[in-house]
Amino acid sequence: MIGALLLGFVAGVVARMLMPGDAFRHMSGPMSWLVSLVIGLVGALVGYLLFTVLLGIGDTDIFDWGGILGAIIGTLIVLPITGWFLRRRQNFPPTR
């Protein structure tokens, strides 16, 4: 359980650093950490589904540190989709 949380957090932080201008860039402190954690966990799930289930690459452990690259790629997929949904609701300012 702790390993899954750490994996999600690391994947979320790395993806947010790699993707400039994400919808959550104005956040700081614990709320930013929580967003990174949740987005990273969802991204790890997307990476698992994409690589292991769809393409047959990797192991069968869903939140395993061996899948950190797939989790980061999954988070890079989830991050702009989440930002698009949030901007449509107009709760967040548009990106520049």
Score class of each variant (00 low, 15 high):
59 D>A: 11
78 V>N: 06
48 Y>C: 03
42 V>L: 08
36 S>W: 04
71 A>D: 01
46 V>L: 13
8 G>V: 02
23 A>N: 00
62 I>P: 01
22 D>T: 09
6 L>T: 04
43 G>R: 03
16 R>K: 15
22 D>G: 12
73 I>L: 14
11 A>Q: 07
73 I>D: 02
56 G>Q: 10
57 I>L: 13
16 R>C: 08
63 F>T: 02
40 G>M: 04
14 V>I: 15
24 F>R: 02
47 G>V: 00
63 F>K: 07
79 L>E: 01
45 L>A: 12
72 I>N: 01
66 G>M: 07
27 M>P: 00
16 R>D: 10
70 G>S: 13
15 A>C: 09
35 V>Y: 07
76 L>W: 05
71 A>T: 01
76 L>C: 13
31 M>I: 11
43 G>Y: 02
67 G>L: 05
8 G>D: 05
75 T>E: 06
32 S>C: 08
15 A>P: 00
77 I>H: 02
61 D>I: 09
24 F>K: 01
47 G>N: 06
33 W>F: 12
37 L>R: 04
50 L>N: 08
82 T>R: 01
32 S>G: 13
75 T>P: 03
29 G>Q: 10
67 G>S: 13
28 S>M: 11
67 G>E: 02
30 P>V: 13
40 G>A: 11
69 L>T: 06
70 G>F: 11
56 G>T: 07
25 R>F: 07
31 M>C: 03
25 R>N: 11
38 V>T: 10
16 R>S: 14
54 L>K: 09
12 G>K: 00
46 V>I: 15
43 G>D: 04
48 Y>A: 03
70 G>D: 06
25 R>T: 12
82 T>S: 11
66 G>I: 03
